[in-house]
Amino acid sequence: MKALVSLAAVLVLLLAAYVGVHLGDLRWLFGVVVPYFAAAVFLVGIVVKVIGWGRSPVPFRIPTTCGQQKSLPWIKQDKLDNPATGWQAMGRMALEILAFRSLFRNRETVLRDGQLAYRTNKWLWAAALAFHYSMLIIVLRHLRFFFAPIPRFVDVLTNVDGFLQVGVPGIYITSFVFLGAVTFLLARRLGWARMRYLSLPADYFPLFLFLAIGCTGLWMRHIDKVDVSQVKAAVMGLLVLAPHPPAVGWIFYAHLFCVSTLLAYFPFSKLMHLGGVFLSPTRNLANDNRARHHVNPWNRPLPVHTYAEYEDEFRDRMREAGLPLDKE
């Protein structure tokens, strides 16, 4: 049900583009107004969100230590899983952000015949890595629409991605890795009772949206081929604030509308993990609180039970027991 609602929402987006562009003539709306609006919401939304997070302090150093601490010289410290300095913490963050270190640790708990086993399970890690990196490459490939001349690294990347040289125009490996990974992530949620139980519509919606974006993209490239020069001219027009929607078919507008929706949805959704992962206090701090003083900005004096009060209450019994007293 939750998945169906999300699927329906994405189908409505596609239908809107079809109705708006194919039946009506709302190219200005879908090709100019919506993208501008989405980009603005995306940028402002992310900035507002991150500033909002940043305005709350980190009162305590609470890294989750996942390896040996730095203590005695003959005990080898695990610098990346239990950083003792800011640089080491940056190393930990790099590993986390670039290689999904924590997901790599995953072990699946299996209870069988009364015995528990913890099996290494890297599927989620592999799928997540495939998904994020293929998306990154796809986004970078799309930079060819945003620059004239096209930056050299975009060309190189595109050539490498298309090295199979199958079809005209050639297929890109990342397109299929991307769709494959999204499909896996979706199937994992739908086919696994536990995952289905903990999933929200907000978990299915982005996956269906990514599928729609990927499929419309492939459709334009390989089936109902779009006039790329028109598209590039339109994108450049948007960038220099001289917008003119391209005179191309509705599939392009469906693609663009889904991307716009993604951008506008991004700051209000779980997709903000993109920014949040940098700010997670259990990962981005060094485990050095015993070595270096850390300040809590809202630290304040609180009522305590002083030794004097304590001795006042127990003085007689302490004296009887022969314990030393501050006040006889």
Binding site: S56, P57, L116, M195, K270, S280, P281
Partner: peptide, 29 residues
């Protein structure tokens, strides 16, 4: 508490419910 703890604020927003934690809790197991 949202104003006092970045951890709380960030953790309220960024979970993607990937399920990696699901079978890690001894009470769930």
């Amino acid at each position: 508490r949202l104003q006092k703890y970045r951890s709380f604020k960030v953790f309220m927003d960024i979970c993607v419910r990937c399920g990696a934690c699901a079978d890690k809790c001894h009470f769930y197991i």
